[in-house]
Design a protein around this nucleic acid. Structure first.
Length: 841
RNA sequence: GCCGAAGUGGCGGAAUGGUAGACGCGGCAGACUCAAAAUCUGUUGAGGGCAACCUCGUGGGGGUUCAAGUCCCCCCUUCGGUACCA
């Protein structure tokens, strides 16, 4: 009757916390705040897998620890519930996405609640709630009114399989990053957000953030700032000109031809009649080439001559103008000056088409490869630049170009504007109306939110318009003042919209008048710790930072950046099994045969591998089962004990069993067979040895929590237990303090034992124990004696013994003596409290 | 190709330049049991030795140092990111 029963204990305390409102967060200016946030999940129909609780447990431990340190903690959870999966489910089954969403949120809430996470559930919301959509639309209108939202007719990423366009960030190697579906270019009128206007600040402000360097680097590279120059070339014999962007204006004298991207508007106009057919064919071929194909870098360079020439502004020389698809239409000005001597791509192209290669920077051998050094190379054959090093030559030529009005220094970015519209149903409608003459106007703020029309068919229309176009009544609006007939925008916002500001709504989630109150924002923001997966390194984090900066410029938020500290948890991997035909098998279908795995039914050999958990690989571990079998505390503990939070780690059922075992041993330390406190817990002052153990444990756990090294912190708690069970007596003071140390990690068990020790209230706000260095010291000390770097003896000495005395003991030690015999002493020093180093020669 | 991160027992992983392998899993031995499971105790890097001990050992090769898993140089492998961005 006294054994550890996690299920019972956990239900009891979860109910207690909810009833008591233990984790409700209320603004309190007298206390410092701490805002700890998880990247909120998309509630899919599959429910949670054990990867989700990893980050959630980490933030929960920090939240609980910070509360015990006196911080007023904001720790909310909600749902990023718009999105494709729910919509596709609706297309398949006809069930309305709102219903699916509600069901999925309920499942997620139940699963997450079972983990005993200390969220303030009163702040929960879904991005699909009309009240939230209202303010998402409101923020969009602020961007629109600032001129940051506009429509564009440019070629966009169209994904036929998804039936929608995608943002640049969602496409990689010509495929949709989520599904791998191929993407093609299509010209469509789309809503864009002018994120490029913030490119400079999005790079610069990264410096102040406590983020992993890798993520900062990825963002910097995505934004892709590069300094260079724009140079204007005129077309020989025609009143036409075009601009090229180059980062190496110093090599202008080395340009031997120019290249226009196939999409460049000038291509058609400058091509000579003789070249018309060839160029036309090339351009058409380039247009029909899929993005997947074009992304292949190993392809041989291709191109055609237009028959026209450009005039190099520095020396008046005529350069042939080519069209080639290695020049991208979307970057810079879609045209380049080619300097094959000093650019590897141009070099390859020149080789392929027998174009001249000129040397203008000495130091390399341009017959072998382009010489691209831009620090030490010295300019040659370059008129006024001769003899200069590259950086100085760049400055000189830019000044020269600017004086003559045929060029200027510029900064260019890879980042493009954010394609913000989707041809989907399950997203936020744009709060925009269009009149018959095509002018666009914003929906009045008091008319927000623009709610989605109720549909029973979520597919695009037969003529290819978005699903919302099916709702003809909804689309048509009459202006109450003028009686004018207006049409609603039928695109919806991408899923990123909702996650761009949810962290702000969490500060004040029930505010009906404003998206958030200035008081709440001023108190809670910024997010002090943000934990989530690395997959959002560019997408979500870049978009959210962009919106935040717009809001900052409007005076609606007081910090330049939303997320002060970012931590990326690793992935939880799991073993999967595949038969020789590549078909995945469930764990239950295979068994071990010696070192190998075989199919139980057929004894066929099976390949096993450690992979990302996914439904298709049949290796998903369900947290509900783990909680049912071992308890939430064991699941939490194991997820943290597996290894460093930021690393990928393979799941092991034996591992969680070990953690459950630890918790049971803790239980048995406190509770006896008769369900009473064990007799070893006594009101007696701890001796020096016990105090030292306790204080060293407090110190280690505190320091490791601060560094989010949860795995080693847990190891310290285990060590304490291993010592404690060896003793006949556990002084009450130690028993009490140990529970406080355990509480952030295994809160249910800690609360239960705390309660059984006679405390009627929760330990959630008990002060975190502090340590005393004086108590940490131990009376004796192990000292290793190294001779020439190898440990030859270990002595136990009094901790207060002087270095010199320890050295003498070491030198005269019987195991050390033989290593010194016949050698001369070169060096001897107590290099650390526990190490004496002796060198002989 | 470029940019990151990583490579340590049978496994997950510990180690401010200072006793490599903490802690856990697994294994082995013992206790309890009619027996098993569970639990408890001990033990567990490899090789050698009766033993005290000795030798080797952190992907590979060099180097710095009294001392290197840790710092420096070169190389290999794995995993992420990125890719004709001028």
């Amino acid at each position: 009757m006294s054994s550890y029963e996690p299920t019972r204990i956990e239900a009891r305390w979860q109910e207690f916390w909810q009833r008591e409102g233990t984790f409700r967060a209320v603004i309190d200016p007298s206390r410092p705040k701490y805002y700890v946030l998880d990247m909120f999940p998309y509630p899919s129909g599959d429910g949670l897998h054990v990867g989700h609780p990893e980050g959630y447990t980490a933030t929960d431990i920090i939240a609980r620890w910070k509360r015990m340190q006196g911080f007023n903690v904001l720790h909310p959870m909600g749902w990023d519930a718009f999105g494709l999966n729910t919509e596709q489910y609706a297309v398949r089954t006809g069930q309305h996405p709102a219903i699916t969403t509600q069901q999925n949120c309920t499942t997620f809430r139940r699963q997450i609640s079972a983990l005993g996470l200390s969220y303030d559930w009163e702040r929960e919301f879904s991005t699909t709630d009309p009240e939230y959509v209202r303010w998402t639309q409101w923020i969009f209108l602020q961007l629109y009114k600032k001129g940051l939202a506009y429509t564009s007719e440019a070629p966009v990423n169209w994904c036929p399989a998804q039936g929608t366009v995608l943002a640049n960030e969602e496409v990689k190697d010509g495929r949709y990053v989520e599904t791998g579906d191929p993407v093609e270019k299509r010209k469509l009128r789309q809503w864009m957000l002018r994120i490029t206007a913030y490119a400079e600040r999005l790079i610069a402000d990264l410096d102040e953030l406590d983020w992993p360097e890798g993520i900062k680097t990825m963002q910097r590279e995505w934004i892709g700032r590069s300094e260079g120059a724009e140079v204007v070339f005129t077309v020989a014999g025609q009143p036409l000109e075009f601009t090229v962007f180059t980062t190496r204006p110093d090599t202008l004298f080395g340009a031997t031809y120019c290249v226009l991207a196939p999409e460049h508007p000038l291509v058609e106009r400058i091509t000579t009649p003789a070249q018309q057919a060839e160029v036309g064919a090339y351009v058409r071929a380039a247009q029909s080439r899929s993005d997947v194909d074009r992304a292949d870098v190993t392809r041989e360079k291709t191109g055609v001559f237009t028959g026209a020439c450009a005039v190099n502004p520095v020396d008046g020389r005529e350069l042939p103008i080519w069209v080639a698809d290695y020049v991208l239409g979307g970057y810079g000005s879609g045209a380049i000056m080619a300097v094959p001597g000093h650019d590897q791509r141009d070099w390859e192209f020149a080789r392929a088409f027998q174009l001249p290669i000129a040397e203008v920077v000495s130091g390399g051998d341009i017959r072998q490869a382009a010489y691209t050094d831009n620090e030490d190379g010295v300019l040659v054959n370059s008129g006024l630049l001769d003899g200069l090093k590259v950086p100085e030559a760049k400055r000189r030529i830019i000044a020269w170009l600017e004086e003559r009005g045929c060029g200027k220094g510029v900064v260019n970015y890879k980042l493009r504007d954010w394609l913000f519209s989707r041809q989907r149903y399950w997203g936020e409608p744009f709060p925009l109306l269009q009149s018959a003459d095509g002018t666009v106007r914003a929906v009045r703020e008091e008319d927000l939110p623009v709610q989605l029309p109720v549909l029973d068919n979520f597919k695009p229309t037969a003529d290819g318009r978005p699903p919302l176009a099916r709702a003809e009544d909804w689309c048509r609006v009459t202006d109450p003042d003028t009686g004018e007939v207006l049409f609603r925008e039928t695109n919806t916002m991408p899923q990123w919209a909702g996650s761009c500001w949810y962290y702000l709504r969490f500060c004040d989630p029930r505010n009906a008048e404003q998206a958030w109150s200035p008081e709440a924002e001023a108190y809670w923001m910024p997010v002090d710790l943000y934990v989530g997966g690395q997959e959002h390194a560019v997408l979500h984090l870049l978009y959210a930072r962009f919106w935040h900066k717009v809001l900052y410029d409007m005076g609606l938020v007081h910090t330049k950046e939303p997320f002060q500290k970012l931590f990326n948890q690793g992935m939880i991997l799991a073993e999967s099994y595949r038969d020789p035909r590549g078909k995945y098998l469930k764990r239950a279908e295979v068994e071990r045969s010696g070192k190998d795995w075989i199919v139980k039914a057929t004894s066929e050999p099976v390949e096993s591998q450690i992979e990302k958990m996914s439904k298709s690989r049949l290796n998903v571990v369900n947290p509900d089962e783990m909680v049912g079998q071992f308890g939430a505390d064991a699941l939490r503990l194991y997820e943290m004990f597996m290894g460093p939070l930021d690393r990928d780690k393979p799941w092991s059922e034996e591992g969680i069993r070990g953690c459950a075992n630890f918790l049971r041993r803790v239980w048995n330390l406190y509770v006896d067979q008769e369900d009473a406190l064990t007799a070893r817990i006594q009101d007696q002052a701890p001796d020096a040895v016990a105090l030292s153990l306790l204080h060293r444990t407090i110190r280690a756990v505190s320091q490791e929590l601060a560094e989010m090294k949860f795995n080693t912190a847990i190891a310290r708690l285990m060590e304490f237990l291993n010592e404690a069970v060896k003793q006949d007596v556990l002084p009450r003071e130690l028993a009490r303090t140990y529970l406080l140390l355990l509480a952030p990690f295994a809160p249910h068990l800690a609360e239960e034992l705390w309660n059984r020790m006679g405390h009627p209230t929760s330990l959630a706000y008990e002060a975190w124990p502090s340590w005393d260095e004086a108590h940490c010291r131990q009376s004796t000390l192990q000292v290793a004696v190294q001779v020439n770097g190898k440990v030859r003896a270990t002595l136990e000495v009094d901790a207060v013994l002087e270095d010199e005395a320890v050295l003498q003991l070491a030198l005269s030690h019987e195991k050390v003596q033989p290593w010194l015999a016949g050698k001369s002493l070169k060096f001897r020093k107590r290099v650390a409290p526990g190490v004496v180093s002796i060198a002989v020669g």
